[in-house]
């Protein structure tokens, strides 16, 4: 069953159209990855779903409800949570305060303590640095915090934009391992990722975006064998 459905969505910035009719459907409990070249519209898709950009046309459905016009804070309140590109941490706040901010939606507030324990188990490094200002963390720790803050919101759908960008390979492996753990809890996720090979390896389904449209879609395992994907995105 589709938890979140993007139907024929067009969107862009100012005069510039980026999305030219995108259809994506996120199945419950599945990890769906969104791959494609720079400028293909991956981030724009996530920003439009989240309500940071208004769709120009088409519609977005969450649990059978039209959420096309909802602003980002209302989406978060409903359980659609975005871990944005560039992390967007509260740099003046401590690690723990960032996490508590993550639990701002009503549906997450009563679970602060449980979820704090959960993310500290997941990322022991964050626990060690809980009183440190988040602006002083290393890049990898900041990305852990960004993901952990997303989990604190007790999401129904977690969208992660560029999980591995700019991180050391060892850290990338750790973070992908975390994604697997999260998947096992039954969380529905959408991942935008530069590292196509990793993305296809970890996800159940994948969409290949090109020039603002879905070029290919299907189970990740099949796409990983697809000739076009192999030559255009995997360099094989």
């Amino acid at each position: 069953m589709a938890v979140l459905e993007i139907r024929n969505v067009t969107s862009g910035y100012g005069e510039v159209q980026i999305l030219w009719g995108v259809d994506i459907s996120l199945e419950e409990g599945k990890l769906t990855s969104l791959v494609g070249a720079n400028g293909a519209g991956k981030t724009t898709t996530m920003r439009t779903v989240m309500g940071l950009l208004k769709p120009w046309g088409g519609s977005i459905w969450f649990n059978g409800q039209d959420v096309s016009k909802l602003p980002a804070n209302a989406m978060a309140e409903m359980g659609v949570v975005l871990v944005p590109e560039g992390r967007q941490l509260f740099t003046d706040m401590s690690v723990e305060e960032n996490l508590i901010m993550g639990a701002s939606p009503k549906r997450a507030r009563d679970l602060v303590d449980t979820n704090l324990e959960r993310v500290y188990t997941m990322f022991p490094r964050l626990k060690e640095r809980r009183v440190q200002k988040s602006g002083t963390l290393s890049g990898g720790e900041q990305q852990m915090l960004a993901v952990a803050r997303g989990i604190m919101a007790n999401p129904i759908v977690l969208m992660i934009d560029e999980l591995s960008l700019g991180l050391a390979p060892v850290l990338v492996l750790d973070l992908f391992e975390t994604l697997r753990e999260l998947k096992q809890t039954g969380l529905t996720m959408m991942l935008v990722e530069q590292n196509v090979q990793m993305a296809l390896a970890v996800s159940d389904n994948a969409y290949v975006l090109a020039q603002g449209k879905v070029e290919l879609q299907g189970p990740s395992r099949e796409l990983a064998r697809n000739e076009h994907v192999r030559s255009a995105y995997l360099g094989l």
Binding site: A76, P84, D92, M93
Partner: peptide, 23 residues
Amino acid sequence: RYGRYIRAVANNRDAAELMGVPS
């Protein structure tokens, strides 16, 4: 909580909005 929201919005309004805060 509201004090924390104010500091969060001051620090990064977009991020606060993503956390469900009506900025």
